[in-house]
Design a protein around this nucleic acid. Structure first.
Length: 133
DNA sequence: GCCAACGTTGGC
DNA sequence: GCCAACGTTGGC
């Protein structure tokens, strides 16, 4: 089981949209590092759903429901399918993550532009605990 | 193969 | 809305 983090701008595609759609194709990733991460995803893996620009916080958890397949819009790239898992009790903001020494090594902090990134199991658990507060 | 120019992302 | 950081492209 691996853990991930995917970014979305809430005006473009929000958690509410995902809940409404039941599942969605996570495509449009045009970055090699992010593509490699998509390819490494396994069915059943969990990922945080992060709002960039507006919100700047981890708001929910999603599940990978289909492993990497060619991006329907461009076969040189790949997409996965995700479905909603749970909405966090409280969002965990970027400011909180940056301020926490345990999370300072997350790609979200060190490589803020990467749109699909791995999360360590201990980071995943720790953030979940933070969201319960 | 280097690097300048350009485009895009995302925090502020 | 601005701009810094990063990734990609293309000329040499």
């Amino acid at each position: 089981m691996n853990y991930w983090l995917v970014k979305s701008e809430p005006d473009v595609y929000s958690w509410e949209d995902l809940v409404k759609d039941k599942k969605t194709t996570w495509d449009g990733v045009r970055n090699f590092q992010a593509r490699n991460n998509l390819k490494a995803m396994k069915k059943g893996d969990l990922a945080f759903f992060y709002y960039s620009n507006e919100g700047k916080a981890i708001v929910a958890m999603v599940e990978i429901s289909k492993e990497a397949f060619p991006d329907p819009k461009d076969a040189n790239w790949v997409a996965v399918e995700i479905k909603p898992k749970t909405l966090l009790k409280n969002p965990v903001s970027l400011a909180t993550i940056k301020a926490d020494k345990k999370l300072a090594t997350m790609a979200l902090v060190t490589n803020s532009r990467l749109s699909v990134q791995p999360v360590k199991p201990e980071e995943f658990d720790y953030i979940l605990a933070l969201s319960e507060k």
